[in-house]
Write a protein that binds this DNA or RNA. Structure first.
Ligand SMILES: [Zn+2]
Ligand SMILES: [Zn+2]
Ligand SMILES: [Zn+2]
Ligand SMILES: [Zn+2]
Lengths: 132, 132
DNA sequence: TACATAGTGTTATATTATAACAACTAAAAA
DNA sequence: TTTTTAGTTGTTATAATATAACACTATGTA
């Protein structure tokens, strides 16, 4: 589970928005949505996003430049993340598989080197889009 | 091994540059480097990059917005990629591990869903930076 | 209080990427 | 050969994503 961080006003506004969203949100779409709450500039959004990523409350979907709230209690504060991404409807789901995270955390390359962090993005069709 | 594609002039110029580079190159750094060869606009670069990615001659490192030549004969044309990234010197290496690719290609999520494609980025310190 | 640390508000700017359109080229079909 | 087609090119303009720099403010701690 996540350590309780006392979010600041801006961080809270932005986290709440992302947390309520069924799909990942992009920085400028977040900006447009919080302007009525007094957050006027890109930097205010990016600073909150940076912090939220750092403490593991949200993750960045790198291939989409978008942000999603973490709903995976086993994910080690932004250090080991895996997502499935639907190439049609762009639905993104955080994968929480003990087997997968164990396999990747223990993976060693040819030189026997281990890694402190990873991000994995799977692409395919979600259930709904497969049936269409 | 890679299917032989007949690269066009621009594609060849840009592929050669990336292929010779020891580290991933960013689009605008590519642009500056090929302007003397007559490639003047970002779009010319991005179009060549898109094509090269599509046919699997290069890969995009999503977390860095940079491009690297594929040196992994077993990598299935941009469909299944894995990289290690040094967080200090930014050295990037394509990982070619039969075990890893088999594990990921066969990975099924909770719903039993399989994925057609994935991209995995490991982060840590490279050998050289570990010793420092 | 004094100090340190982190967050804020703001303007300006840098970086990454695509839209739209006319022209050209190579290769396949007639 | 001519015609057609798909793909690529060159160009200008613009969109989308992200950071630099600086003055200021809140909050916790000694
Ligand atoms: Zn998570
Ligand atoms: Zn879908
Ligand atoms: Zn490859
Ligand atoms: Zn290194």
């Amino acid at each position: 589970m996540h350590k309780e961080h006392n979010l600041t006003k801006n961080q809270k506004i932005i986290f709440d928005l992302i947390d309520k969203s069924p799909q990942p949100l992009k920085a400028y779409s977040i900006l447009y949505n919080v302007q009525k709450k007094g957050i006027k500039a890109p930097l205010q959004v990016y600073r909150a996003l940076d912090k939220l990523v750092e403490i593991g409350k949200i993750h960045k979907i790198e291939s989409r430049n978008a942000f999603i709230a973490c709903h995976n209690s086993s994910c080690q504060v932004a250090k080991a993340t895996a997502f499935s991404i639907c190439e049609i409807c762009e639905k993104v789901t955080e994968i929480s598989s003990a087997g997968l995270s164990k396999y990747l955390a223990n993976f060693k390359d040819k030189d026997g080197m281990k890694y402190s962090k990873y991000n994995l993005e799977f692409f395919g069709l979600c259930k709904k889009c497969t049936l269409k």
